[in-house]
Amino acid sequence: MSAWEKLTALPREIVLGLVLIAMILPTLKPLGLPLMVGTMAKDWYDTVDALPSGSVVLFDIGFGSGGYPSLGPATIAALHQMFEKDLKIILMATALEGSMMYPLIMNKVKPEENYGAVYGEDYVFLGYIAGGQTAMAGVLGDLHAIVSTEYTGKPIDQIPLLKGVEGAEDISLVAYITTSGDTSEGWVYQAYSAYGKDVVGGMLSMMTTSMKPYYDSGQLKGLLDGVKGAADMEFLTRHPGDAIKSSDVLSFSQTLVLIFIIVGNISYWGVKTSEKEGR
């Protein structure tokens, strides 16, 4: 077997082992590699920043344990900005596991401790609402008809924040962070198309391809794409967290993948050339 042939068929163990090393090294010793803030995250930041204090934001936690490492940091950074701006936040979950993500996120945001926010007055969590787009349409159409209690079982009629919120007309911005394509597009249809509401969305990097056309057309005012978007948001909100730490891991591992792609192609054409010469 020639050197080209060996390079074109590197054993899986070697490739995956090197990727693992490329992830472990920057995790153990972060290098603080430079970061360029993208326009999509900046637009999310600016959209929230432009809201007057006291505006109501509907925030959907649309991910579970699988999406938490990528999207949890983005959610935490986004909520930091909203609490800093003194916005009123109605949190809900369109993902079944979203209600399990809520305490994890709030334990890091610490709204009471960091911002003096009061549960029920400044923010509230409605819990998981089944139905996907039906739930979205319901919450935006008539919140009190679709939800009777908040997360802990307290009737929403007793929640001061929700007394003045009937539906879309009382909500200034819809924000969501999700691993689901249906949820991602669903909020555009239900909030932007039906009510003309400003919508900002966060999603996994692999979903950016399908959601970016909505951002380019203005239907999404801002977009956070995976860990990169989360790192941008952490930088913009000056709340460095897990995403900025993960940026080094991303840089290392994606550079290695790039090298593998190039090596694979060079060796492929090397094999082809040597075969031609052999003939």
């Binding site: 992830m23 490492p69 399990m100 792609i261 694979g264 492929y268």
Partner: peptide
């Protein structure tokens, strides 16, 4: 948090390895 969260995150994270190897094997001109 003790059982499901780490398993769910691990399952998702393992995609990275498949995608890396897939990119090396498939993306050839």
């Amino acid at each position: 948090n003790a059982l499901y969260l780490p398993i769910g995150a691990t399952m998702y994270a393992s995609l990275c390895f498949y995608m890396s190897y897939g990119a090396y094997k498939i993306l050839r001109a």
